[in-house]
Design a protein around this nucleic acid. Structure first.
Length: 137
DNA sequence: GCCAACGTTGGC
DNA sequence: GCCAACGTTGGC
């Protein structure tokens, strides 16, 4: 199983909205960046992703799982980009903020810190475990 | 294929 | 609101 992080502006798509679609899951669409799209294509059913709120909040708030692997994003007329479908698993018991992650030097190579503009990124198991611990899940 | 100019993202 | 860091575009 692989681990990822999905970034979203809560005004556009929030954790609350995501949890409302828990029977069918919700389409993660609108990615228009090749590196992010490459990551989407590498996701497998059952992979887990952190759900990160950017903008004002800047914290990891929950965990979702992939229930449908990459397919063409119908909102993309160029037919180059893909979506996946994810379903919320559970919220973190304690949100983990970007500030907190940045303070910890173990995370100095974490993509969220290093590549702040990337919206879909891979998370190594060591980071995954550490953040789960910080999030008390 | 290079690179200057421009556009976007997101942290501060 | 600013700006650094990226991405993309288009002329050459």
């Amino acid at each position: 199983m692989k681990y990822w992080l999905l970034k979203t502006e809560p005004k556009e798509w929030s954790w609350n909205q995501q949890t409302r679609f828990n029977n069918k899951g919700a389409e993660w669409s609108g990615v228009r960046n090749y590196q992010a799209a490459k990551n989407l294509r590498n996701m497998k059913k059952g992979d887990k992703c952190f759900f990160y709120h950017t903008g004002k909040e800047k914290s990891i708030i929950g965990i979702v799982t992939v229930i449908k692997e990459a397919f063409l994003d119908r909102s993309d007329k160029t037919k180059k980009f893909v979506s996946v479908i994810v379903r919320a698993l559970y919220p973190l018991k304690r949100e983990v903020s970007l500030h907190e992650i940045k303070k910890n030097k173990d995370f100095k190579d974490f993509p969220l810190v290093k590549q702040s503009r990337l919206s879909v990124m891979k998370v190594d198991l060591k980071y995954w475990k550490k953040i789960c611990k910080m999030g008390k899940v």
